[in-house]
Amino acid sequence: MKRLLLILTILFSTFSFSQDAIILSQENANEKGITPIWPKCDRSRLEPANCFDQKLRNHIIQNFEYPDAALNDGLSGTVTVEFIINNKGKVEVLEVTGAHRYLQREAIRIIRAIPKMQPGKWGNKPIAVAYTVPITFRKPQ
Rank of each mutant, 00 (worst) to 15 (best):
L46D: 14
C41P: 03
A49Y: 13
G74S: 01
G33W: 00
N63F: 04
P48I: 06
D42F: 02
L75P: 11
G77I: 03
I85S: 13
L75F: 13
E82F: 03
T80H: 14
N58S: 13
N28I: 00
E82I: 10
N72A: 07
G33V: 05
V93E: 03
I85Q: 09
D53M: 13
N58G: 11
F52W: 07
A69M: 08
E31R: 07
I23M: 03
V81N: 07
P67D: 03
V93K: 01
H59M: 06
L24E: 06
Y66I: 04
G77A: 03
N63E: 12
G89V: 05
G89T: 14
N30C: 13
A49L: 14
S76E: 12
H59T: 07
N30A: 14
T78Q: 10
I34Q: 12
E65H: 05
E92L: 06
P39T: 01
E65A: 03
P67W: 03
I85L: 09
V79H: 05
V91S: 00
A69N: 04
V93I: 08
Y66Q: 00
L71Q: 08
A69K: 02
A70V: 08
G77V: 06
L75W: 14
I84E: 06
T80N: 13
L24H: 02
E27R: 06
G77H: 12
S76V: 05
K40M: 00
A70F: 02
N86R: 11
L94I: 05
I37P: 09
P36E: 12
S25D: 09
K32M: 07
V81L: 08
N72E: 14
E27I: 07
L46Q: 11
D68R: 02
E47I: 13
G77L: 03
T78K: 15
C41K: 09
S25C: 11
V79G: 10
N28C: 10
D42G: 06
P36G: 08
Q26E: 08
W38Y: 03
E65R: 00
F64E: 10
F52N: 02
F64L: 13
C41Y: 09
P36H: 11
C51A: 05
F83G: 04
I23G: 01
N30Y: 15
F52E: 09
H59S: 09
P36V: 15
T35E: 14
Y66T: 00
